[in-house]
Write a protein that binds this DNA or RNA. Structure first.
Lengths: 188, 188
DNA sequence: TTCATTTTTTAACATTTGTAAAAAACTGCA
DNA sequence: TGCAGTTTTTTACAAATGTTAAAAAATGAA
């Protein structure tokens, strides 16, 4: 809960009143490893906050599955297309560990945005920060080789690499698992 | 102007009053080809709307320059990191044609967001839609080969390819110009 | 602990893409 | 029109990554 409050305020500082309006709507929920939080082709009706656990977002290709996002403690989880357009998402989101989340229903959140200008600006900032993070990843991929991206992950999120299997990380880096193995062999 | 109004309302429908508050702050401005709208390392203090023209956003690498976004008529232009965090942007943004833009100063826009809940939600939606577009591009790159991405561009934005030189398009697609030439030769 | 299953690594070979340099095509201006 | 500069294509070769399959290592349940 503490982590949640800190995160909310770090997105955009809120008065106590507004903060309360938001957090009373966020319900703790424990879910097991492998649970699917959002399924491609379906409309996800909730946003989650990860208090404890890991999630990954992936898309199904013809033959392969591509993982393109990991969420760790302190991250919000949403299926963008569902959250933003109310349309079926492209991606599925799966828990990789038994997790403790906070859930808020999408319609509840939208109502808060309509009624409270502070929360509307909070929601704006939340989207903007997600945009920023995605742009950073997008640009990093344009410039850096898979090897450099991997080494950066090693430095910035060593936990991630220890907790997530390499096949997922390889696809996140945009290479095959064989290539990631080669990269790891070179570094050693 | 017409195009601008339509775009604003397509992001998030506004009452006439709110719409007016926004558009009176947007000033038309004509700028020549090669004009730099935002420079990497600097804080950009304006958001632009492209009424007529083309822009590209790019980052400087050690040896190369990578173009990662094109803006056409109907697009908003911002240096994300400046707009979102008020920090120096990673990217430079350059006009590729003589252009007609509408400009709004960032502080003016921020003030509107604080005062008008409709505009705050409009700003939220604007960021969300940008996020959505970026995610689509991000995912497309994970699944599609440069050749497929190029052919999609040919279908969805043939104008873009006619108006922009291939070196920029190649780097946008994440390949060298030589590779893009090979792709084009194969298609013919 | 043991065994079956899953995950990771290694190997050999095919394919794709990059690099550098030259040729060809295009553009804009005098 | 003609010419200089820019952009695009082509070529030959090098380097990186993918594919397939098998071996090795790690994991989890009985």
């Amino acid at each position: 809960m503490d982590q949640l409050l800190k995160k909310i305020n770090s997105v955009y500082p809120l008065t106590n009143d507004s903060l309360n309006q938001l957090i009373v709507k966020m319900k703790p929920i424990e879910l097991p490893k492998h649970k699917i939080l959002a399924e491609a082709g379906q409309v996800g009706r909730s946003v989650y906050f990860i208090e404890k656990g890991i999630a990954r977002a992936y898309c199904e290709g013809r033959e392969n599955q591509v993982t393109f996002w990991f969420g760790l403690e302190g991250d919000f989880v949403f299926s963008y297309n569902s959250y933003i357009n109310g349309r079926p998402g492209y991606e599925s989101i799966e828990l990789l560990e038994n997790s403790l989340l906070y859930e808020i229903k999408d319609d509840v959140l939208q109502t808060l945005f309509q009624e409270n200008i502070e929360l509307a600006n909070w929601g704006r900032k939340l989207a903007e920060l997600e945009l920023m993070k995605l742009e950073e990843r997008y640009i990093a991929r344009l410039f850096k080789s898979a090897s450099e991206c991997y080494q950066e992950l090693l430095n910035t999120s060593p936990l991630l690499i220890r907790r997530i299997q390499l096949g997922y990380i390889a696809s996140y880096l945009g290479v095959t698992q064989v290539t990631l193995s080669r990269i790891r062999a070179e570094i050693r």
